[in-house]
Structure formats: C-alpha cells, structure tokens
Write a protein that binds this DNA or RNA. Structure first.
Lengths: 198, 198
DNA sequence: TGTACATCAGTGAACGCGCGTTCACTGATGTAC
DNA sequence: TGTACATCAGTGAACGCGCGTTCACTGATGTAC
C-alpha cells in the first residue's frame, strides 16, 4: 500500500499476514507457521497479528480459504476455451494438478485436518462451495446420464494424481522419465480416452 | 512381555513406543505426538524414549514404516481369492481405501512431508518397496499390454478416493446417503466397469 | 552354584527455546462541530 | 481551517507452558570364570 517503512500503522496487515503466511507455509509447512514468525517477517511486533487473527489456527483457516478460491477460479477458467467436453476435462484436471504442484504445502493444508472445520465454518463453507462448483464441470464430460460414481471417480483420479505427484510417489517405471506436468497430462488423456470410448 | 508393572526395565519399549505413538497419532495428529506424551502414556520417564529414538521425527518415521508394511500386506492379500482380474482390482482398491478409513492419521502421515525422507532412508526404501509391489497387481487388470498411464490412473483414483473420503469431501449429491465403504465400492466398480469395456 | 563385572535400559533434574496469549500503553487516523 | 475526541492498530514487557535434549546417576541383566 505504498505506506512508508516508518509508519506506525501497517496499512493492510490482515492481507499481508495471509500473504506472508502462505510463504512461510510453502517453506516450512504448517508446523513451521507461527504467528510470531509471520510477524517477524513483516517487521511488526509479535502481538500485532492478534488484532486480526485471534489464534494461529484462524490464520491457517484464512490461508486455506484463499487457497480454495484460487483453486476453483483456476479450474473453472481452464476449460473455457476447450474444443470438446473431453478436452475441457483434461484442461481442468491439469489446472487442478498444476495448482497442487505449484503450491504443494497449501494444497496439503486445504485437504488436511490442520484446521478444525467446526471451529471455522467459513472455511467449511468455502471448501464445500468451491468443490461443489467443480462437480457439474466434471460430470459434463459424461453427458446427460452422468453417474455420481463416474464423477467421483474422475475427481478422485485428478485429486489422487495431484497428491501422488507432490509426494513424488510414482516410481520410475510409471514415470518413464517424464516431468510431473507431462506425466499428469498423459495420465489425464488416458483417462479421458477410456471414458469416452463409445 | 508379561513383565510386571514394577520392573525397572520395560522389556520392549521400542515396540511399545511405536504402538502407543500410533494411538497418539490417531487421536491428536502428528503435531500432538511428542516424545514426552508417548513416554507419559507408557508410564516411563520422559527421557526414556531417547534410548530408542534419537529424535521425535525418528519415531514418526518408524510409525510410517509400520504403516506402509501394513498397507501393502493388506492390499496384496485382498485380491488373492478374487474370481477375475477386475474383481481383484476392486478388492485391492477396497483394502487400500479401507486402510485409509481405518487409520486416517497414519495414512496421512505416510503420504505427507512430516518426515524428511532424506534423513530417514529406511522410510524412503519401505515406501518405495511397498508401493512398487502394488504396481503389477494394478496393471494385471489391464492385461498384457497395460500402459503405465492406465496403471497410474487407477492408482491415482484409489488413492484420491481414500484421501477425499477421509477428508469427508464428497458432497451429498455424489454420496447419495451412502457410507464411506459403500461409496468406495460403487466407485471402484464403476471404474473397473469402464476400464473393462470391450 | 557363586561372584565380579560389564553392559544395558531406565531415572529425574536441569537447560534453553519458541510459542500463544494477555495487558496496559501509545501513536495514527477519522469524524463532529 | 482548526480543535476535541473517539476509535483503531499498533508496541513491548511479561506470563506460563510443553517441548527436545543433555547429563550424571542407578537398578537390572547377562556373561565369564
């Protein structure tokens, strides 16, 4: 916010806490993210964050909320100019996996139990809302008579692929020397091909 | 074993630390697992564990190793008396998902970055070994000409399904009132059906 | 069977650390008149 | 434009806590003779 380094008031500390919190998360994981550490990086007193986030977990929740918004925006956008429903699903799947690969710690946080959702209903609502928005996009690839099972299977595959890739789990035999995104695309195309067989 | 409560020596503290560590993990997650807490539960001094595990992370690694051994044993066993390759894959998938549902915190730990694998090569080796053993079992369902992509797709689906279920992510529309295992079985069967279409 | 002794596997006190959280405070900002 | 005042958003000292880790110790166990 173009405020000088010397101002007493930060200007937009809440937003800055989330942004810096994301950086700390990416570097040190959820266990390494403390309110004091984030305050330290922002050059602010260690008790300043409490003005915006009552607890450490509240900051984690806000970070996860931002993550869900980002993921669903990217995924929704990704399929828009695809030529076919199949291609749209591949593109959306790639966006999903790409997000996980770009922000692995954030992705993990979003799908973890580090934040108690009962204590943070805004996170629960955002998560549910942004994932629910994906569902029709997925089932569109199956046409009118899409089964819930098929939709869940496709989502599971994309999600599991993201998880396995950020954990570097696929063994070399399956990897075949390919990079993460290349491997993801090949796998998604194989899946789409299987699904769309007449 | 069968040592009285009053003995100075515990008898099998290493094994007991792993077993009790798993319980603590299941109740409080990795962040709640401390060497002191495990020692406390075992009625042993807080510095006793250091005799067996130099660091907290070493205990986590040992727990994860036990988890991988358990997962691969269950999964390998599961398909043995199936009538067909398809059915075997469904059964193995169910065993995989069932393990995750029964031990969610352990499953998360195994596929997480809570333990630095470079610092614990035994964990890296066990993980790689037990997952590599699953690969041929999965690709068997596709017959001789199995593609790596298809194998990875199937593994991803099973893994992602496990993850989504332990996070309670599938929305009610997809769930249709079904319990976790029931939903998993239906999804796995849908997947197997799609794959085996002539 | 008895004794000496090395080794193993615990104990418990102590240390320093970073953390979350609280509190009285103060500087900066915005608003009413 | 100026002044008074409420409110907001920080500061920094202090607290208590649980933790990992170290250390000198001691009780129990196993082995050699």
């Amino acid at each position: 916010m173009a405020t000088s380094d010397k101002t007493y008031h930060h200007g937009d500390l809440r937003r800055a806490l989330i942004a810096t919190g994301m950086k700390v998360l990416a570097e040190s994981g959820p266990a390494g993210l403390s309110l004091r550490e984030v305050a330290r990086r922002l050059g602010v007193s260690h008790s300043a964050p409490s003005r915006h986030f009552a607890t450490r977990e509240a900051l984690l929740a806000a970070i996860a909320v931002a993550g869900y918004e980002n993921l669903s925006a990217r995924t929704a956008q990704a399929g828009k100019q695809a030529a076919s429903a199949d291609e749209a699903m591949v593109q959306r799947g790639l966006a999903y996996v790409g997000f996980a690969l770009k922000h692995p710690a954030l992705f993990r946080l979003m799908f973890s139990d580090h934040v108690d959702r009962k204590a943070h209903p805004d996170l629960a609502a955002t998560a549910q809302g942004s994932l629910a928005a994906l569902m029709p996009q997925v089932s569109a690839a199956y046409g009118e008579q899409a089964l819930p099972e098929a939709t869940l299977a496709a989502w599971s595959m994309v999600h599991g692929l993201a998880q396995l890739l950020i954990d570097s789990q696929p063994p070399p035999e399956l990897r075949g020397g390919r990079g993460n995104l290349e491997l993801a695309e090949a796998t998604l195309r194989a899946m789409a091909h299987i699904i769309s067989r007449p």
